[in-house]
């Protein structure tokens, strides 16, 4: 088995070596080497796997424009939080899971 080696990689926020969204990539369960404590991030110095991102299509109520926003789910201190990114001035959205 060939190893992937991660060293001195830095994420300023999440996933020093890598971050994945939703399903873990296959290679994550295979052999990877994180050298010492050289990878760094605020959340997940080696990898961040604890957040899930969903995509929502947002409609403006009086227009045909379709905008794409992102809803993220974060787990912090045992609770699950959802928040929208980049919604800005859109007054309404619809949610469906």
């Amino acid at each position: 088995m060939s190893f992937n080696t991660f060293s001195n990689n830095i994420a300023s926020i999440e996933g020093g070596a890598f971050k994945y969204v939703e399903t873990a990539p296959v290679f994550l369960t295979q052999n990877n080497v994180f050298v010492g404590e050289t990878n760094n991030a605020i959340y997940g110095p080696n990898y961040a796997a604890y957040s899930v991102k969903m995509r929502l299509k947002i409609f403006e109520p009086l227009g045909d424009d379709i905008n794409l926003a992102k809803m993220s789910i974060f787990f912090l201190t045992g609770k699950r939080y959802y928040f929208f990114e980049k919604l800005k001035t859109i007054p309404y959205c619809m949610i469906l899971q």
């Binding site: 992937n4 080696t5 991660f6 060293s7 001195n8 990689n9 830095i10 994420a11 300023s12 926020i13 999440e14 996933g15 020093g16 070596a17 890598f18 971050k19 994945y20 969204v21 939703e22 399903t23 990539p25 990878n39 760094n40 991030a41 961040a48 991102k53």
Partner: peptide
């Protein structure tokens, strides 16, 4: 992967 950096996923970011 060595000395790479970003805000999310210093080396790799898997979206889906």
């Amino acid at each position: 992967f060595m000395n790479n950096n970003a805000q999310y996923g210093g080396a790799i970011y898997f979206d889906c």
